[in-house]
Write a protein that binds this DNA or RNA. Structure first.
Length: 672
DNA sequence: GTAGTTCCTG
DNA sequence: CAGGAACTAC
């Protein structure tokens, strides 16, 4: 059956018909939509699209039952339509509208009520439509459409779109739901891409069609009002049927709607429907139902396209989320080694997992990042302003490889996936979770920006680093800079928030987080360093280089990392001195009365600082070292050694010998 | 000189 | 947490 053929063409996309200059996209596809809707790539999309489809479906049932008087089911109609359309291609005057196909397909069996008068009228209407289109391309669409099979047409159209995509990209800002996938729109004809002169025509035609689309949308609303009452009864009886259909359709989604070319194809169909529908509006009284039928398909196409776009974005991201490894070593319930009770008279704390007061860690990271990288940040502003065109993004990101469920031709593998991916990412970054994704009912919890762990790191800090590293890469290539280049290309146009989004992505995405090699230190590195502090207070440069293999060390980075540990020590010693003096103030006489356990206030303070997320099991050795340090401070202060300006040096000398080995797990760049 | 550290400041 | 000053050590 043609149905299977057409369906196959949706994803087979053989390159055998590239040279055919037969833009038979609109009508065949549109016609196919009329009958192949059960195979349409519906997915578990948004509520809006589902409601749209429900309405559409109900309306179609209405038409089929009351207008065509055809008792055949949809699939049977489909086959008839295709057959009739193919057979009548040469005999039909001018182009045959989709509704023509439908009606003519049903007429031989069900006794179509249309008279010759009506048919002639419809032909005239179609003529008007083409005149409105104002381009010979549209005529070509119609003419060539009748001279080929559906599968070939679809294939050719997709191939030509794929090639044209690289040549032309229209930054069209649409205020309707199709804006997302219309970014990828290409010239609305399916000729091979050597027809440069016709691209301008395609531009104009598209603009025309867009305006008509808007007009049609207004028209649709009027029609909906007219038939709303009439459809209510059908909607009630059809709800379940739509649901079951929806489930079936969701499985074949990727088989049909794979890439922007097909999106454009869909768009083309939609636009064509708009064009025709608008003309039929003039014939309102006669062709009400016909127009309504076209409306259904139009809305169907619109919802399909939007659904498809959203689903692919979400699916790509959610796939990354699912693959994300555990970023931290989670503490296992372990018997706490209590060395005694803290001298602090505070009530005992039951566990280390006790809720800790929130601190402004993010702002700290942000601030630090800005300062620490200020010397490198020389081109941040220009980079922020520069928005690389989509083609550039596509050309930059090919090295980004990620499993992507697509049926693709070899040609697509060589180019389209990368562009597509960058598109998805950019879409995600541009609109973020606050727009489209936030409203998706299928949104997994992992995508929720409010998930606590992901907010641990500063997005703004990441934005700064992104800009800084981009300045590096702008001057000299780095073998491992691929990921960062992609980061910059995607995020810089949207400055901070989007970069932060990508940072969040990178934290969850195994590829981004594990394979991006930063020239600068990231919040993840800081977190790792803090955890390492539990083992070593005085790490050597070599140790740092060993345990941060993903960091490209230079003088600046090394000192920054050393500075981190210096700051860690500073905080550590300050706490020690503080609690030692506190113990003395509380009248502790024997140093052995001072212990450090996981319930101790001191430990809580330290853990809060170095293990804020409390997802790391602090080694017992650290408790011992902390206790020794506390004793040292206690003894020194008790002996009034603190009167000496350098009284702490002796303590430092002791503590620096208490470093223990760092677990091997920290050596992997993917530890965090 | 350079590296590493502490101390101070913001 | 970073910057900077001051100090020490090699």
């Amino acid at each position: 059956m043609n149905l299977s053929l057409a369906d196959q063409s949706m994803h087979s996309s053989s390159g055998g018909c590239l040279e055919d200059d037969k833009p038979e996209v609109i009508l065949p596809c549109f016609r196919r939509n009329l009958c192949e809707e059960p195979l349409a790539p519906y997915s578990n999309g948004s509520i809006i699209s589902q409601l749209l489809r429900k309405t559409i479906h109900n309306k179609r049932v209405l038409d089929e039952n009351h207008f065509y008087f055809s008792g055949s089911v949809a699939t049977a109609d489909c086959g008839q339509e295709d057959q009739s359309s193919v057979s009548s291609k040469d005999s039909t005057v001018e182009a045959v509208s989709p509704s023509d196909h439908t009606s003519s397909g049903a007429s031989p069996e069900g006794g179509h009520p249309l008279t010759d008068h009506l048919q002639a009228k419809r032909a005239r209407v179609e003529n008007i439509i083409r005149v409105m289109a104002g381009s010979p391309n549209s005529r070509q669409h119609c003419d060539s459409e009748r001279s080929d099979t559906d599968s070939q047409e679809t294939r050719e159209a997709r191939e030509s779109f794929r090639e044209n995509k690289r040549k032309q990209r229209l930054p069209q800002h649409q205020d309707h739901s199709t804006a997302g996938w219309q970014i990828n729109r290409k010239p609305g004809r399916s000729s091979s891409d050597n027809c440069n002169t016709k691209e301008e025509e395609c531009h104009k035609l598209k603009e025309q069609l867009h305006s008509m689309q808007r007009l049609l949308r207004q028209l649709q609303e009027k029609f909906l009002q007219v038939y709303s009452q009439e459809n209510q009864e059908y909607e009630a009886g059809d709800a379940t049927g739509v649901d079951s259909e929806h489930d079936i359709l969701g499985e074949g989604r990727y088989a049909c709607y794979i890439n922007p070319e097909e999106r454009f194809e869909t768009n083309n169909r939609t636009v064509a429907a708009n064009c025709k529908d608008r003309t039929k509006a003039a014939d309102y009284l006669v062709h009400q139902r016909e127009t309504l039928n076209l409306q259904e398909n139009l809305k169907q196409e619109l919802s399909k396209a939007v659904n498809d776009c959203i689903d692919r974005v979400f699916k790509n991201v959610s796939k990354d989320m699912d693959m994300s490894p555990q970023q931290c070593v989670y503490s296992s319930p372990e018997v706490q080694i209590s060395l005694g009770t803290d001298r602090k008279s505070s009530p005992p704390h039951h566990s280390q997992a006790e809720e800790m007061p929130a601190k402004s860690g993010s702002s700290e990271y942000c601030e630090s990042s800005e300062t620490q990288t200020s010397q490198d940040q020389t081109e941040a502003l220009s980079l922020v302003v520069r928005k690389p065109p989509m083609t550039q993004v596509g050309s930059v990101t090919p090295t980004m490889k990620r499993p992507y469920p697509m049926h693709q031709t070899p040609f697509q593998f060589s180019y389209t996936p990368t562009l597509h991916e960058s598109h998805i990412l950019e879409h995600l970054l541009k609109y973020g979770p606050h727009s489209n994704f936030g409203a998706l009912p299928c949104m997994p919890p992992s995508m929720d920006r409010t998930s606590p762990d992901s907010v641990d790191l500063s997005w703004d800090a990441m934005a700064m680093r992104s800009k800084v590293t981009s300045s590096h890469f702008g001057h000299h290539h780095h073998p491992s800079s691929m990921g960062t280049v992609a980061v910059d290309g995607l995020c810089l146009p949207h400055v901070k928030m989007e970069s932060g989004e990508l940072q969040s992505l990178a934290e969850r995405n195994p590829y981004l987080s594990l394979n991006i090699s930063f020239e600068g230190l990231t919040p993840s590195h800081l977190k790792k360093a803090k955890l390492m502090f539990f083992y070593t207070r005085y790490p050597s440069s070599n140790v740092l280089k060993t345990f941060f293999p993903d960091v490209k060390f230079n003088r600046c980075i090394t000192s920054q990392l050393i500075k981190w540990f210096s700051n860690f020590r500073e905080f550590y010693y300050i706490q020690m001195e503080k609690f030692a003096r506190q113990a003395i103030a509380e009248g502790v006489r024997n140093v052995k009365d001072i212990t450090v356990s996981r319930d101790s206030e001191l430990f809580r303070a330290l853990n809060m600082h170095y293990n804020k997320a409390n997802d790391f099991h602090v080694p017992n050795r650290f408790l011992e070292v902390a206790e020794i340090t506390l004793h040292e401070f206690y003894n020194a202060i008790s002996a009034a050694k603190d009167s000496d300006s350098s009284w702490k040096k002796a303590i430092y000398k002791v503590i620096c010998k208490l470093d223990s080995e760092i677990p091997e797990e920290f050596k992997t760049s993917s530890y965090l």
